[in-house]
C-alpha cells in the first residue's frame, strides 16, 4: 500500500537557499537531516519540537515551499521535486494545503467569503461550484455568519478559521497547520484545534499539526518528536506522554497532569497506564491511593 506521505532520508540545509532571510537561517540552524516518516490517509499527526528544531522546515518541504537538499518526498507515491511541471505543482499544492502561523499574513481579500473563494478561483473552478464550496467551507468552520465581514475586524481564532476554510474550499486531501495556533489566545487555540479534529473525523482529511504545545499534540492520533533536525521519537500520545525523558530532551513541557504522573514515577511510585487529561490522571491516582489502603 502506498502511504499518503512518505519521506526518505530527507535533508535540508538553509545554506543552499540564498534567498532565505537571516532569521530563517537561524531558526533552521539544525536544518533537517535523515528524516524518514510515513503518514497515512485520514491520520491526525502532530509534529512537535522546540523553536528551531526543524519541525516547520519539515512541513514546508512537503508541498515544495522549500526544496530538499537531499532525500525524497512522495505524496501518494508520486515524487515531489522542483522538476515537476506547473500543473503537477498546482495539483500538489491543492492536495496538500497549508495554514500558516500569522493569521494576518495569509488572507488576501477584504471580505471573508471573497478570501475563501481565492483558492478555487485560482484553480479555475466554475463560478456556481465556487459558491457552493465557499458556503460549505464557511459552514464547516462555523464562520457562515461572518461571510460578508472584513477580515481585519475578526479575532485571531476567527481569522485562522477563515484561512482554514480557504484551504478546505480547494478540497485538499491533507492539511498542514504550521504553528497555526502559536499567535492565538487559549480560546482561539481551542477553536482551531476543534476544527482540525472535525476535518479528520468528519471529512477524512489527513491533518498534520506542527506545534510546540504538548496539550495540543495530545489530541492527535500519533506524535512525531523532532529535535535538532532529527526524529527522536514517535508514538501515540500515551506512549509519548509517559516518556518524560524524551519530552525533556526535546525541550518541551508536558501539561501539568501528565507531568505530575511523570514526577510521581521519578520519585519511585509505580504508576500503571498513562493519563493525559485531568480525568484520566485522577482515575490513576485514586486507584493508586485505594490500592495503598488495601495493602
Amino acid at each position: 500500500m502506498t502511504h499518503l506521505i512518505e519521506t526518505r532520508e530527507l535533508c535540508f540545509s538553509y545554506d543552499d537557499e540564498e534567498n532565505e532571510s537571516t532569521e530563517n537561517k537561524l531558526e533552521g540552524k539544525y536544518a533537517l537531516c535523515g528524516v524518514n516518516i510515513t503518514i497515512d490517509k485520514g491520520e491526525f499527526v502532530a509534529v512537535v519540537g522546540r523553536n528551531g528544531s526543524g519541525k516547520s522546515t519539515f512541513a514546508k518541504l512537503l508541498n515544495l515551499v522549500l526544496e530538499a537538499s537531499s532525500g525524497e518526498v512522495y505524496i501518494d507515491g508520486k515524487k515531489v521535486s522542483p522538476e515537476m511541471t506547473d500543473e503537477e505543482l498546482l495539483d500538489l499544492r491543492r492536495r496538500v494545503g497549508m495554514v500558516f502561523q500569522n493569521p494576518d499574513n495569509q488572507l488576501v481579500a477584504t471580505i471573508v467569503e471573497e478570501d475563501v473563494a481565492f483558492g478555487p478561483e485560482n484553480l479555475g473552478i466554475p463560478s456556481a461550484e465556487i459558491r457552493e464550496r465557499v458556503d460549505a467551507a464557511l459552514e464547516l468552520v462555523g464562520m457562515t455568519e461572518y461571510a460578508r465581514h472584513e477580515p481585519h475586524r475578526l479575532s485571531g481564532g476567527q481569522k485562522q478559521r477563515v484561512a482554514i476554510a480557504g484551504i478546505i474550499a480547494m478540497m485538499p486531501e491533507c492539511m498542514i497547520f504550521d504553528e497555526s495556533t502559536a499567535m492565538l489566545d487559549p480560546s482561539g487555540r481551542a477553536e482551531v484545534v476543534d476544527v482540525m479534529e472535525k476535518l479528520v473525523r468528519e471529512k477524512g482529511i489527513t491533518v498534520i499539526n506542527i506545534t510546540h504545545l504538548m496539550s495540543e499534540a495530545a489530541r492527535a492520533d500519533r506524535i512525531i518528536v523532532i529535535n535538532e533536525g532529527k526524529v527522536i521519537g514517535e508514538g501515540t500520545p500515551k506512549e509519548i506522554f509517559t516518556n518524560t525523558e524524551l519530552v525533556r530532551r526535546a525541550g518541551l513541557e508536558l501539561p501539568q497532569c501528565a507531568a505530575l504522573l511523570g514526577e510521581l514515577r521519578a520519585r519511585g511510585v509505580r504508576i500503571d497506564g498513562a493519563g493525559i487529561t485531568p480525568d484520566e490522571c485522577a482515575d490513576i491516582i485514586i486507584k493508586k491511593l485505594q490500592n495503598r489502603e488495601e495493602e
Binding site: V65, G97, M98, M170
Partner: peptide
C-alpha cells in the same frame, strides 16, 4: 509570508 501563502493557494 503572504506571497508564500498565495502560492500555497495555487
Amino acid at each position: 509570508e503572504l506571497a508564500t501563502a498565495m502560492e500555497c493557494r495555487c
